[in-house]
Amino acid sequence: MTEVTRPPAAAMCDVEPTRPVAVSDLCAAAEAMATRNLRFVTATCLDMGATFDIYYHFADGVKLDNLLVTIPRDAELPSITASYLGAFLVENEMKELFGINVVDIGIDYNGRLFMTELDQAHPMAKVQSCAAPTVEGE
């Protein structure tokens, strides 16, 4: 496993604020966003090698408000579809393309949103965790 050097999350040079939250607080934070009537925009997943950085973007009027969750590679990620059902597509996408174990998605495609059973698993992940890395290249 080669660790690629990447800028820390603090190097985010955007005007919009990003607030780090713990995985356990994610659902509560999303619910708080929903009560503030923020629009769910999308989530972005970054493969950092040993961990995943997941940004959740919410629109507060014209501005964006972001949450950042960092989880270890094989940890579970709770779904925010209880608060924002609209997140189901992006959570399925993360599950499928990155191999994040997103649990309790409102509408779960079980890894068949974009891919078929014939495709290579998790093509967006930088480290192919499911197959033996020495045998299978990209």
Partner: peptide, 13 residues
């Protein structure tokens, strides 16, 4: 309210 929670965008929103 549904448009906001479901994350609609653009003219739909």
């Amino acid at each position: 309210d549904k448009a906001i929670l479901l994350g609609a965008a653009g003219p739909v929103l």
